[in-house]
Design a protein around this nucleic acid. Structure first.
Length: 598
RNA sequence: GGCCCCGUAGCUCAGUGGAUAGAGCAAUUGCCUUCUAAGCAAUAGGCCACACGUUCGAAUCGUGUCGGGGUCACCA
């Protein structure tokens, strides 16, 4: 039970004993005490004044006195300012909390609740390499999945690969037309970048042809339809849907190149999936499903043969489900997939990590499921996140203003190398150890940067300034961890394990920073719950930053190894060990690893 | 135009009903003969977009205005 909830129930109990009235935890607030006041937790009394017909002063003192009397081991003092009742937690209670939990690597994590949740994230297109926006998606999805696991859910990570459609044909056509048989190997290019380049080439050529036709006097709209390369692409899409062997072969070959490239990047950024779905397969499911819906009257056909659903009574529009020529659209495959997911995995919830430009799309999907009477319609959750914008404007692949994922990763690793060499603290590391350290720090900086802000908010990235390694950053927290490891090394493993085995923590009085740390460590439990409730890793990022910051103040103020007494050394050792465990655990939820030295 | 999201320090962001609104970066100033200075301590920086309302109490809730973004495709 958390400190806050202990106080809450103690207050409820005291109010009943004092005044014979039943209150609930929602009837009053328990907050942390602001630093400028004396105390650890504050009971806000305003809401209780009227029902109890008491003045703040009297209620505060009566309640404080009663709480103190009946919770002797827990509350050690109180003071009342206006309608704020400030409570002190006793040193003994804090120390017993610490001794009980300091070496629990699972501290804060919840036991299994048998809820099955799927988190779908990443979901790339196979015609362009990953960029900064995808990184936010990947880190978010992965982290949310881990946070849900930490809360006792059974979690499956999945990805739907967008491997079919006219956009894929574009890079295929361009390759046929311009590559002269070149391959990623022959050009020494990473597969996804190789294919992405042909997607760009398509657009260049298309633009050139359109301009040419316009110069010949054609109206622009007509030119856009008649550009030869576009006509070829549409023809190719038809042949693809027919399964024409040479097209399928090319398609397989080019997707293979892309997957190889993606795998490399996924490996570097630590994304993994329990299940990968392919749109080239799920769209068939979706089509089949539309056919059934047409039979039972859920959907209707227009004169041109296209299939629709009317969602206007839900405040949405009529929505197309199948084109007149029978080919499927974006939503078609989603309908097929959603049913498969829930049925195959017996899910209690399915979370889609998709950008907020698709809020409407996801609403439509939910509404369609509701209309069709699917029991899982309300178990579909869209975790929408804001776009990553650049200080120089939006990222547009066609205009070459994207921040490429692989480039950024390389840059982050180069930066961490640069910082590390400049500081010169790990000159004795082997090549291999150095390489691992640069990865740890570079990825840590990048992941933390993208996860520290509320997912729902748009965020701005300045490509001119590289991601910082100081302050509210991953490396700052990793550094705190490394410092603690250094303390433990200094004391010597044998000695500190001996000290930890000694459960008799007899301390005169806790110093302010020692108290702050223990109280803040306890809040990790709550941070994990909150992060899961909000599907928001930034809760963890903010928490662990604050923890590291508090520890660094403590570290500067008090010595652990050379503490003023054996008891103090022992106490601070416990605090340090638990801080290191919670830092490691928090960062793990963000997909960030910790170095022993840096 | 309809619907949705956002507006907090020069910049990037916390805080979403409680006390004098907080961090980081950038700026200025101290602190390495004592566990790692990727750190610590301090100074400075705010009509929380604006107006009205609800409340004992509003950055937080409601309504309106202004500003920014998204979406409303036989694109994905």
């Amino acid at each position: 039970m958390s400190f806050t909830s202990i106080i809450q129930s103690a207050v409820v109990k005291s109010l009943e004993e004092l005044y014979g009235q039943q209150f609930f935890e929602k009837d009053f607030q328990v907050n942390e005490t602001k630093p400028e006041f004396e105390g650890d937790y504050t009971v806000v009394l305003f809401a209780l004044l009227k029902p109890l017909k008491k003045s703040p002063e009297i209620l505060g003192n009566e309640l404080g006195k009663h709480l103190l009397k009946n919770n002797a081991g827990f509350i050690s003092g109180y003071n009342v300012i206006k309608a704020f009742l400030n409570l002190n937690i006793s040193d003994e209670f804090l120390i017993s909390f610490l001794t009980k939990n300091y070496n629990d690597v699972c501290f804060g994590k919840k036991s299994l609740n048998h809820k099955k949740v799927m988190v779908e994230y990443s979901s790339p297109n196979t015609n362009k390499p990953l960029h900064l926006g995808h990184l936010r998606n990947n880190f978010l999805g992965w982290s949310v999945a881990e946070i849900l696991k930490a809360n006792g859910n059974e979690v499956y990570k999945s990805s739907i690969v967008n491997d079919r459609g006219i956009h894929i044909c574009k890079s295929m056509i361009a390759w046929q037309q311009f590559a002269n048989g070149a391959t990623p190997d022959s050009t020494d290019t990473k597969g996804d970048h190789f294919v992405g380049d042909y997607y760009v080439k398509f657009n260049d050529e298309y633009k050139r042809e359109v301009d040419e036709l316009v110069d010949e006097g054609k109206p622009e709209a007509e030119a856009e339809k008649e550009a030869p390369i576009m006509k070829k692409t549409q023809q190719m899409l038809l042949e693809w849907e027919e399964g024409k062997p040479d097209i399928m072969e090319l398609w397989n070959k080019m997707n293979g190149w892309v997957y190889k490239g993606f795998d490399e990047t996924y490996k570097r950024i630590g994304s993994d999936f329990d299940q990968t779905f392919y749109e080239s397969q799920t769209y068939i499911l979706g089509k089949e499903f539309v056919r059934k819906g047409l039979e039972d009257g859920s959907f209707y056909k227009k004169e041109d043969g296209s299939v629709w659903i009317d969602l206007s009574d839900a405040g949405l529009d009529e929505k197309l489900l199948l084109r007149g020529d029978g080919t499927s659209v974006y939503i078609t495959q989603d309908i097929g997939l959603v049913k498969q997911k829930f049925e195959d995995y017996n899910l209690d919830e399915s979370i889609y990590v998709i950008g907020d430009e698709q809020i409407y799309h996801m609403k439509v999907l939910k509404e369609i499921c509701r209309k069709l009477g699917f029991p899982f319609a309300d178990k579909i959750l869209h975790l929408s996140y804001g776009m990553v914008e650049l200080t120089t404007g939006k990222m547009k692949s066609r205009e070459g203003t994207v921040v490429d994922a692989d480039d950024l990763i390389d840059e982050m690793i180069a930066t961490s190398k640069h910082h590390t060499e400049e500081l010169g603290k790990v000159k004795d590391f082997t090549e291999e150890e150095l390489k691992a350290l640069y990865e740890t720090l570079g990825m840590g900086a990048m992941k933390f940067y993208l996860l520290r802000v509320d997912p729902k908010k748009r965020m701005v990235f300045n490509p001119e300034e590289s991601i910082d390694f100081h302050g509210f950053t991953g490396p700052f927290i990793q550094y705190t961890y490394a410092r603690i490891q250094s303390i433990l090394r200094k004391i010597g493993e044998v000695n500190w394990q001996w000290a930890m085995g000694n459960e008799q923590l007899v301390i005169g009085k806790l110093l302010p920073l020692e108290r702050d740390l223990i109280i803040f460590l306890e809040k990790y439990d709550n941070a994990i719950s909150q992060a899961a409730e909000e599907l928001n890793p930034s809760v963890i990022a903010n928490y662990v930053f604050h923890l590291a910051k508090t520890f660094n103040s403590f570290y500067a103020e008090h010595s652990v190894a050379n503490a003023e007494s054996e008891e103090k050394r022992n106490l601070r050792l416990h605090i340090s060990v638990m801080t290191a465990i919670v830092i490691k655990s928090s960062l793990q939820l963000l997909g960030i690893t910790v170095p022993r030295r840096m």
